[in-house]
Nucleic acid binder design. Structure first.
Length: 930
RNA sequence: GCGGAUGUGGUGAAAUUGGUAGACACGCUAGACUUAGGAUCUAGUGCCGAGAGGUGUGCGGGUUCGAGUCCCUCCAUCCGCACCA
């Protein structure tokens, strides 16, 4: 009988479903193992071949853990709130819930075809009210909490209120409270607190809450009435529609993740993640030590506070630079400079932060006309505005030391500002060529710092500015608070209502606050978010609810907890179940989440840990990041301004625009012309310039798979043609999971052939037949060599070499016509995690209870079968391998040397020269140095 | 700009600790078989060379008996950068 994979896979998928083979309970006393995949956003394009890469790897690992005796939790769900469904709703009027449900059904169908061991009884969807009830609940806890810098953990805001009532807020405790918290609060006494209005009190508390309403800059597009991501802004215009975009201060909900900056940094030491991801997070958090220094304003009250990591260079300051958005800009601009500053500020407004950071070649800036005083020398320092200074980092103002900072150097050179050398550089440094930015050298022109090393000067300066009250030592983090409000429809409503402009939480027993129906998914005419269209969107029909919704990352920041107890209506999850499973043992997902999701999930985990809800404070113990599977996009070339398309080989001499074309219309780069014309109505009258051979050839490029690039390859077609087991093994065989690679189906026949070959081992002339007698030593050697390799490969997540080793094994067994039960039975268990369907079928044929393979014990490696008496030594001369000689492993180094030297080959390669040295590593190599 | 990663045959890749470079596949070449198949099997296949042999892991240098692996310089490509999920 031939390998009829379609029948077999259908049969077992049905069997697993009916018998709930993969259902997991908390009753087992086995050790637990929690394997988690990053859940997908169910997009309209369906699952593409890139998604399963990680799912297959984690499925193999989960099955392996099950075979070696663990109670394994491997759940799946959907991150189902998000922008694409909303965009689709805006275009078609279709409710996002409907689109989302259809997409989920499609995903489920696709996932089911791949034979995963998910416990579907635990499925969650972030957009279902029974789930987002708890997302809202967590928001409420964050709102009701502040970060206590003394205990270094989150605590109830009531504690803080009590403290205010009893002691007020002293200057001392205010500075202690800072601990990463930015506040604009001035000290007050207990009696002052009691006398404050409710509004004032709530305003003060807002500076401490972990979920708070604050102001932050966004890319605002007035024409679309919406906020845009940096990605959606191109040259100051919106990607969609090309409307002007400006940076605008907007009052919105934020999360005080900065309070956790240090703990988020420290926690990285304890998790087993790729160094690259940890490094990215460290960089994102961006801790830097330095000082904050105040420069008093000349002719104005107050001062400019700057943050610097180089307090040693304070005497080299020749100007200050403010971000264009800095709050002092208006005050400091003199009448003569007003026009120039206004025009500069409005230009910067239209540049995204990304552009401003990336554009290093254009130096731009403008003088305010005002001066500050140098704290030590009392000299006047000009105050400039430059858009390379970002308002969100540090204090939005920098002290510019052109002699020792490259950016400042360029700025100073461009505007002919003073350059003061305060460190003597190494002899070969030329200040005409650039700044001396090394943190080495001796201080000069720096008063009391003269003669000190840079390191000494940093310390000395920090203590001097503190003593004189000019500033203080400061640790700065690049990490910014996370904006939490979105002016969108398809997200979790924020469970807040407003009474006299003060936000209050709705009562907990009214959760979930359901997403209301609206007539359109667009902002209102007066610029409110879509929820402003809902009727009765009021608490107790009186007080307006918050109209913005939560961001996509809200639901995904805690979903790993909900899987533990997905239907609990009283708690996030029961403490017993949380304790039973603990945190995620293996997290599998894309590295593109390094700074978003992974940071937020860690933040919420630490917060819930502070509240005593979670016993652990890191969510993901070990993580593997699968690489992205890239698509091969095809292009047609349209002549500018015409409906004529030029073939790739003919396009020289035409001015053309490349346009993505659906890969289903392209076969071996050849375009299906009729299909193309029918593809879109505006192409129906297209004309073509063909190759001399009469075909239209498309160009191609390897890029991210996405619906908009029409390069999505779905797994379905491949499953139909080759089966799920083949696709599973092929995706693993492509290369290391963590590596990105372009998708290509060329090699799939090799893997399919392997499964057929494996199947044939059990059949003679098409009939199932295994030999019950004892195999030879060679057969056992093949088996045990494979067991060792497969287990080693699994332990180090090297799935691609695992597949190779199975191939080697089956090739050897085929060659020796091995059909011994004692070999094939363990091999079947060994292969089961990779190819669950074919192995279940053969396991049943071998006479076992159907479905029992999943929990069968994994074969153990026995080294006795691999003991060898001889070893074939490669013999090198000066490191070049020349010949091999087989010698007993029992020989001593002296005996090996003696034998080698008498070999005829040795004499030939010595060419009569004397040996200088002979390196012998027993069981490894011989190297003769001549 | 900042940060991260990766460069090995025609292609995907392997080489876990510095020890035989290219396992395992795809593709290609030649052949066998014939229910002419998206089937199976045999042989070959890094490059140069008739061969002996030489040469070879992005470029250039270094350490070592020995370097794909360690160190330095340079080059190229890909990914992320806070409202895409």
């Amino acid at each position: 009988m031939e390998y009829r994979f379609q029948e077999i896979e259908k049969k077992w998928q049905h069997f697993w479903k009916i018998n709930q083979t993969y259902r997991v309970e908390e009753t087992s006393t086995k050790p637990t193992f929690y394997v988690l995949d990053m859940f997908p956003y169910p997009s309209g394009a369906g699952l593409h071949v890139g998604h399963p890469l990680g799912y297959i790897a984690s499925d193999i690992f989960a099955r392996y853990k099950k075979h070696i005796g663990f109670n394994v939790l491997h759940p799946m769900g959907y991150d189902s709130f998000g922008l694409p469904a909303e965009q689709y709703a805006i275009q078609t009027g279709q409710h996002p819930a409907k689109t989302t449900k259809e997409n989920i059904d499609r995903y489920r169908e696709q996932l089911d075809k791949l034979g995963f061991n998910y416990d579907w009884s635990r499925e969650i969807r972030t957009s279902s009210p029974s789930y987002y009830k708890w997302t809202q609940w967590i928001f409420m806890q964050l709102f009701n909490s502040w970060y206590n810098p003394i205990t270094n953990k989150a605590a109830s805001i009531n504690e803080l209120i009590k403290e205010f009532e009893q002691q007020g807020l002293s200057a001392d405790s205010l500075s202690a409270l800072h601990g990463g918290i930015e506040t604009e609060v001035t000290p007050f006494s207990a009696s002052e607190w009691a006398g404050f209005t409710e509004q004032k009190q709530q305003g003060i508390l807002m500076n401490f809450r972990l979920a708070y309403l604050g102001e932050s800059y966004v890319n605002w597009c007035p024409a679309l009435g919406t906020v845009l991501a940096n990605d959606e802004v191109v040259n100051g215009l919106s990607e969609r529609g090309g409307h002007p975009v400006e940076r605008k201060l907007l009052k919105q909900w934020s999360m005080r993740i900065t309070a956790y900056a240090q703990r988020l940094l420290d926690g990285l030491d304890g998790v087993d993640w790729f160094d690259s991801i940890k490094e990215t997070q460290r960089n994102w958090i961006g801790r830097s030590e330095g000082a904050s220094v105040h420069f008093p304003l000349l002719n104005h009250e107050g001062s400019i506070e700057v943050f610097t990591t180089r307090p040693d260079t304070l005497f080299g300051v020749s100007f200050l630079t403010l971000a264009p958005e800095h709050e002092l800009v208006t005050l400091l601009t003199t009448d003569e400079q007003r026009d120039a500053v206004a025009s500069y500020v409005s230009t910067s407004k239209n540049r995204s932060e990304r552009e401003r950071m990336a554009d290093v070649n254009t130096i731009s800036g403008v003088f305010t006309g005002s001066y500050a005083t140098h704290p030590f020398t009392k000299e006047p320092i000009p105050i400039w505005i430059g858009d390379y200074v970002l308002v969100g980092y540090g204090t939005g103002a920098v002290m510019s030391v052109p002699a020792h900072d490259e950016r400042d150097y360029k700025f100073a050179t461009h505007f002919s500002l003073a350059i003061k050398h305060v460190i003597s550089p190494s002899a070969d440094h030329d200040f005409n060529m650039g700044a001396w930015t090394e943190k080495s050298g001796t201080m000069i022109n720096s008063d009391f710092l003269n003669g000190l090393s840079v390191t000494e000067a940093v310390q000395r300066m920090i203590s001097d500015i503190a003593e004189n009250g000019y500033g203080s030592k400061r640790i700065n983090y690049r990490l910014r608070d996370a904006v939490f409000g979105r002016q969108r429809y398809w997200g979790e409503p924020i469970p807040v209502y407003f009474k006299e402009d003060i936000p209050y939480l709705i009562p907990e027993d009214q959760l979930p606050l359901d997403l209301p129906e609206v007539d359109k998914y667009l902002p209102t005419e007066d610029g409110d978010p879509p929820l402003g269209r809902a009727t009765h969107w009021k608490f107790e029909e009186v007080y307006e609810y918050e109209k913005s919704t939560m961001p996509g990352w809200a639901g995904s920041s805690w979903y790993f907890i909900r899987y533990l107890d997905p239907t609990n209506e009283l708690q996030l999850a029961s403490p017993e179940k949380i304790a039973y499973w603990g945190n995620v043992d293996l997290y599998m997902g894309g590295a593109e989440h390094a700074t978003g999701h992974l940071l937020y999930a860690r933040f919420w985990c630490k917060f819930l840990h502070d509240l005593g809800i979670l016993p652990f404070d890191e969510p993901f113990r070990k993580m593997i990041n699968q690489g992205m599977i890239l698509g091969r996009s095809s292009f047609v070339y349209r002549v500018v301004g015409q409906q004529t398309f030029v073939s790739a080989g003919m396009k020289d001499g035409y001015e053309t625009t490349p346009i993505h074309v659906d890969i289903s219309l392209v076969n071996n780069d050849e375009l299906d012309l009729e299909g193309f014309k029918a593809w879109r109505s505006d192409y129906k009258d297209a004309t073509f310039v063909l190759e001399p051979s009469g075909v239209y050839l498309c160009g191609y490029e390897v890029e991210k798979m996405s619906k908009s690039k029409y390069n999505v390859q779905t797994p379905d077609e491949l499953v139909d043609r080759f089966g799920a087991d083949t696709l599973r093994m092929y995706e693993m065989f492509l290369g290391p999971v963590e590596q990105s690679k372009p998708w290509d189906t060329k090699g799939i026949t090799g893997v399919h052939g392997f499964l057929k070959k494996y199947w044939r081992l059990f059949h003679i002339d098409g009939t199932f037949e295994v030999n019950e007698t004892t195999p030879t030593k060679e057969h056992f050697k093949t088996l045990h060599k494979t067991i060792r390799k497969i287990r080693e490969d699994l332990d180090r997540f090297s799935f691609n070499t695992g597949v190779s080793n199975f191939m080697i094994c089956v090739n050897e067994l085929t060659e020796s016509k091995c059909n011994f039960r004692q070999i094939l039975e363990p091999l079947t268990v060994l292969l089961a995690p990779y190819a669950p369907h074919i192995t279940e079928e053969l396991w049943e044929k071998l006479g076992h209870e159907p479905g029992s393979l999943y929990a069968a014990a994994y074969p153990e490696f026995n080294p006795d079968y691999l003991i060898e008496s001889d070893y074939e030594y490669p013999v090198s001369f000066n490191g070049k391998m020349r010949f091999k000689v087989s010698l007993p492993l029992s020989l001593s180094i002296e005996e090996i040397q003696a034998t080698i030297l008498t070999q005829a080959e040795t004499i030939k390669w010595l060419e009569g020269k004397a040996t200088k040295k002979i390196i012998i590593v027993p069981g490894k190599i011989v190297n003769v140095v001549i």
